[in-house]
Simulated scan of single mutants.
Amino acid sequence: LRPVRLQLELLKAELVQQEQGVESTVVVFGSARFKAPDAAEAMLRDAVASGDEAAIARARQMVKNAQWYEQARRFGELVTREADALGEPVIVATGGGPGIMEAGNRGAFDAGGRSMGMSIFLPFEEAPNPYITPELCFQFHYFAIRKMHFLMRAVALVSFPGGLGTLDELFEVLTLTQ
């Protein structure tokens, strides 16, 4: 029944997006590990209080990387506000998880707009972030179907710093574009 499951996973998200009027997306890729500035600062305070030098070094790096979270949040907000001002039906789409993905969805949320999250079922992964428009929160079982949905309505793609998952998504886009 795997072929049926693949087809249903492709079709369900497609039908929901049609029903919700999703015509164009700006896709945001990036690290799931980056924290919001306030959360990173709290980590640093806790690490300093503990006196653990390794934890302090990790927390300092988190504070440094928090700039990317803030940039992604501002980007999501800018895309949402400008699309609304222009009357364009463009929404922010992310992988639906924490970090940069959360920041992109949060920016759209802060601007009063909708955003889409396309997460994947993985062991030990967090639930979709709370800033996704509930009707546009999808959870996929297959990476290939998820990647197809990233591109089916994409008019632009932004890749923030990330790890292997971000590189995988970015190179898949480059391959399919080619």
Rank of each mutant, 00 (worst) to 15 (best):
Lys35Leu: 15
Ala42Pro: 01
Gly162Arg: 05
Phe140Gly: 00
Ser115Tyr: 04
Arg60Met: 09
Pro89Thr: 06
Gln67Asp: 12
Ser115Leu: 01
Met118Glu: 04
Phe143Gln: 01
Leu8Pro: 07
Asn105Pro: 00
Phe75Gln: 03
Gln7Ile: 14
Gly162His: 02
Ile145Ser: 00
Thr177Pro: 00
Val22Arg: 06
Arg33Tyr: 06
Ile100Pro: 00
Pro98Lys: 09
Glu41His: 09
Val63Pro: 06
Asp84Phe: 08
Phe29Gln: 03
Arg33Lys: 08
Arg106Trp: 01
Phe171Gly: 08
Leu167Gly: 03
Ala127Thr: 15
Thr133Ile: 05
Glu169His: 04
Pro161Trp: 08
Pro37Arg: 02
Arg60Asn: 11
Ala47Phe: 07
Gln67Trp: 07
Leu11Trp: 11
Glu169Met: 00
Glu172Val: 11
Leu10Phe: 15
Val48Ala: 02
Pro98Met: 06
Asn129Gln: 10
Val79Asp: 02
Gly87His: 08
Val92Ala: 00
Thr177Phe: 10
Thr94Phe: 06
Gly30Lys: 05
Met62Leu: 11
Glu135Ser: 11
Gly107Glu: 07
Pro123Val: 10
Phe75Cys: 05
Pro89Gly: 09
Glu102Trp: 08
Arg33Pro: 06
Ala108Tyr: 06
Phe171Val: 13
Pro130Tyr: 10
Glu70Tyr: 08
Ala93Tyr: 04
Val155Thr: 15
Val48Arg: 14
Ser119Met: 12
Leu167Gln: 15
Thr94Arg: 02
Leu164His: 13
Gly113Trp: 02
Ala154Ser: 13
Lys64His: 12
Gly95Glu: 02
Arg5Asn: 10
Val158Asp: 02
Val27Thr: 11
Phe124Ser: 09
Gly107Thr: 05
Ile56Met: 05
Val155Pro: 00
Gly117His: 09
Leu136Ala: 04
Arg146Glu: 03
Glu126Phe: 12
Glu172Tyr: 07
Val79Ile: 13
Val4Asn: 11
Glu41Ile: 09
Asn105Glu: 01
Gly113Lys: 06
Gly87Ile: 00
Leu6Arg: 12
Leu157Glu: 01
Gly112Thr: 02
Asp168Thr: 02
Met116Cys: 12
His141Gly: 08
Glu82Asn: 07
His149Leu: 08
Val28Phe: 03
Ile56Tyr: 05
Asp84Met: 01
Arg60Glu: 15
Asp168Asn: 11
Thr133Phe: 01
Ala156Cys: 09
Glu9Ala: 05
Met152Arg: 14
Thr177Ser: 13
Ala93Cys: 15
Pro161Gly: 02
Phe143Leu: 05
Ser24Gln: 15
Leu167Asn: 10
Asp168Gly: 03
Glu102Gly: 01
Gln61Arg: 14
Ala111Tyr: 03
Pro37His: 00
Thr175Asp: 14
Glu88Arg: 13
Arg81Ile: 10
Ala57Trp: 08
Ala144Asn: 10
Ala39Arg: 09
Ala83Trp: 05
Gly96Asn: 01
Leu78Val: 10
Ala32Asp: 12
Leu8Ile: 13
Phe121Leu: 14
Arg2Trp: 13
Glu23Lys: 14
Ala154Met: 07
Val79Glu: 08
Ile120Leu: 11
Ala47Asn: 06
Cys137Glu: 15
Phe75Tyr: 10
Pro128Ser: 11
Ala36Met: 13
